[in-house]
């Protein structure tokens, strides 16, 4: 008889004393290869009220589409200056911002490639378990054939695609709406 995974519990309102010690909102250093991008946004609840006590964790491949993880067996270069992991709290106004590089494409389950994306977890007071979502990139032709985006009804797909900011290059906007008509698409990833 196998065991069952331990039950999730909320991070609560005071997680920043524990999880806040390892804030990692700049994934890029001088040697990192790839196109720099700063992604910023606002985290809102079902009443449109800012969520100041949330934390976002992100995970992504490097610019070649290779994860810094032993199970990524692809014959692609590792970037020693890029871990692919970030942890970003929301501020008192419920806003967050991080700087990374646009990841390269990684394989899907059929041997094709997924569109470039970042996977993300949202933790907050009020969330008994994390929410899982993804961040895709605008003007990316591969979005049209990405198998995960195609699991989502067309009218909601745009919640997963970061938006360009008029007149600003190197910066994208991506908001997280926890509940309501414009709710961000969240995935069932298991735990």
């Amino acid at each position: 008889m196998s065991r069952q995974a331990t039950t999730s519990q909320t991070v609560g309102p005071f997680f920043s004393i524990g999880m806040g010690t390892a804030i990692h909102d700049n994934l890029v250093s001088a040697g990192t290869s790839g196109e720099r991008v700063t992604i910023e946004g606002h985290l809102l609840d079902g009443d449109g009220i800012s969520v100041p006590d949330a934390i976002l964790e992100i995970w992504q491949a490097n610019s070649h589409g290779k994860y810094a993880h032993p199970e990524d067996q692809q014959d692609k270069p590792v970037d020693p200056s890029f871990s692919g992991y970030g942890r970003i709290p929301t501020d008192d106004q419920g806003k967050f911002r991080f700087t990374t590089i646009k990841p390269g494409p990684v394989p899907d389950l059929d041997g094709k490639f997924q569109a470039p994306h970042i996977v993300a977890s949202v933790f907050a007071r009020g969330l008994l378990r994390r929410l899982v979502t993804r961040i895709y990139f605008p003007d990316e032709p591969a979005n049209a054939t990405d198998f995960v985006l195609n699991l989502v009804e067309a009218s909601r797909r745009e919640t997963l695609i970061a938006k360009k900011i008029a007149g600003v290059s190197g910066k994208l906007e991506w908001n997280v709406i926890l509940q309501g008509p414009n709710e961000t698409v969240f995935f069932d990833c298991g735990l």
Partner: peptide
């Protein structure tokens, strides 16, 4: 009450990501 998603989660097959 105001932070739980109201729409069904989309089942995500596990990929390399």
């Amino acid at each position: 009450l105001k932070r739980a998603p109201s729409k069904s989660l989309v089942y995500l097959p596990h990929t390399l990501s």
